[in-house]
């Protein structure tokens, strides 16, 4: 900003349109860059959501992993846990697994497959879209899932993962 205004002020008569154009370009690039940096970052800050019946305010990353690997059958208030996930190749699922759970998507699949095909556990319920995820978590007592940004949905609670 400063360099732009000072350069146009110090040389107001020397080819002003050219200088304006040249300095305006990096400025708009910087602005777009800033938007690209901040906006998707806010978008990809996936959040863990739960049904209204769940009273926990926050859980640890370790606990979040236990819920999504189907190892915790109950909430603190003894409500059965119902886990909802998006398909393995869904971008939101991949982001959530890596950023929130700290697991690679293929690791989750391995854990679920071992349980499904050895009879020692069940798979989470797979939903097709983020909207369906919200709907199912909102309507299932003990439900847990995830969204891109929970502020858009009032019918579910956000659970902070420390």
């Amino acid at each position: 900003m400063d360099s732009f205004s000072s350069s146009s002020k110090s040389n107001p008569w020397q080819r002003p349109p050219v200088i304006r154009q040249q300095s305006a370009k990096p400025l708009s690039t910087a602005f777009i860059g800033l938007v690209l940096m901040l906006w998707p970052w806010r978008l990809t800050a996936q959040e863990l959501i739960v049904n209204e019946s769940v009273h926990n305010a926050r859980i640890s990353q370790n606990e979040a992993r236990l819920f999504f690997t189907m190892r915790l059958p109950f909430w603190e208030n003894n409500l059965p846990v119902k886990v909802f996930v998006l398909p393995d190749d869904h971008p939101l699922h991949r982001q959530f697994a890596k950023n929130v759970l700290g697991l690679f998507p293929y690791q989750l699949r391995q854990v679920w497959d071992r349980q499904i095909f050895s009879g020692t556990g069940q798979a989470p319920i797979t939903v097709a879209t983020e909207q369906e995820m919200v709907k199912r978590v909102a309507s299932t007592p003990g439900g847990i899932g995830y969204v891109e940004s929970a502020s858009a949905y009032s019918q579910v609670r956000t659970l902070e993962v420390r």
Binding site: S60, N62, R71, L72, P73, R114, F117, S118, T120
Partner: peptide, 27 residues
């Protein structure tokens, strides 16, 4: 079961958890 531990028992015909792959070796 709690967020720190889980205990249980499996009864019946159970796949042997040997090595990395034995439990689901035919899948």
């Amino acid at each position: 079961s709690s967020n720190e531990q889980r205990w249980g028992v499996r009864v019946g015909r159970v796949k042997n958890p040997l090595g990395i792959y034995n439990e689901t070796r035919d899948v």
